[in-house]
Nucleic acid binder design. Structure first.
Lengths: 131, 131
DNA sequence: CCTTGACTTGGAGTTAACTCCAAGTATTAC
DNA sequence: GTAATACTTGGAGTTAACTCCAAGTCAAGG
């Protein structure tokens, strides 16, 4: 699969795909006779993995370390697991934080609904108190 | 409360606090006779609100818009509600995405546990297949 | 009175993660 | 077979969100 198609399929620009390869986030992609990138099944799986991890905010640098360990073979399995455990931990914290803020937003929206209702009813003394 | 104390209390650098004020993320903070920032209760509530929102990843620009509407008074309550609803929506999507990735990480960690167990048992033919 | 240290400002510098560009080569369309 | 299109590379530019810096002010301790 050509880079343009991969870009289309995963919603990642061709520039970004090349950048990922350059910095080692994705190992060198398969090329055709002319030296042009021709993503095979494995390459696509790697792109998909990286896409997910990046969307979740895992730092490029951490992912580079991880990918480099994968390249070094089975002996690095323990170190790779450590990275995943650490990132899982970070992710969990992040989710908890976001859920807290979601609650705050929900509350604020409710308050606004009440205020707007009052304003609609012409109660202009519905001084907001919301920030 | 002086800027250094606020910085300490909320884990935001004094530079960042001044930056927030400069770009309009926080309305001008109360000053003492000498012109030095002296955060009052309202200022602190604002700092806390912004801290939460920023931690959840709400863009500074969006928050500037919101804060500016607050300054413009009650007539902007509807527009402010719209911003919050939109951000709530984005946040929910984000949380769903993170939870998906959390699941992927959990699965990968499990797979690593199995592999590491095999390796530990000396089954060097436990060829990983994990990426 | 002078020094120390926390504060002020506007503006420049940094970082992560892209994103774009110029110059060159290869493939496809006519 | 040649013009247009798509690809290549290394490197420069961009964006968001800080973060740091130089030069200056001011209150308080010795």
């Amino acid at each position: 699969m050509k880079i343009a198609e991969v870009s289309e399929k995963y919603g990642i620009s061709a520039d970004t795909l090349r950048y990922y390869e350059r910095v080692g986030l994705i190992p060198p992609v398969h090329r055709n006779e002319g030296g042009i990138r021709d993503y095979d099944e494995l390459d696509l799986r790697r792109v998909d993995f990286i896409k997910c991890m990046r969307r979740a905010g895992l730092p490029v640098e951490v992912l580079i370390d991880y990918v480099s360990l994968v390249q070094q073979g089975d002996s690095t399995a323990g170190a790779r697991r450590e990275i995943l455990v650490e990132q899982r931990h970070q992710l969990l914290n992040k989710i908890e934080e976001l859920e807290k803020v979601l609650g705050i937003l929900d509350h604020k929206i409710e308050v606004y609904d009440e205020i707007l209702l009052k304003i609609e009813q012409g109660l202009s003394n519905a001084k907001s108190e919301v920030e």
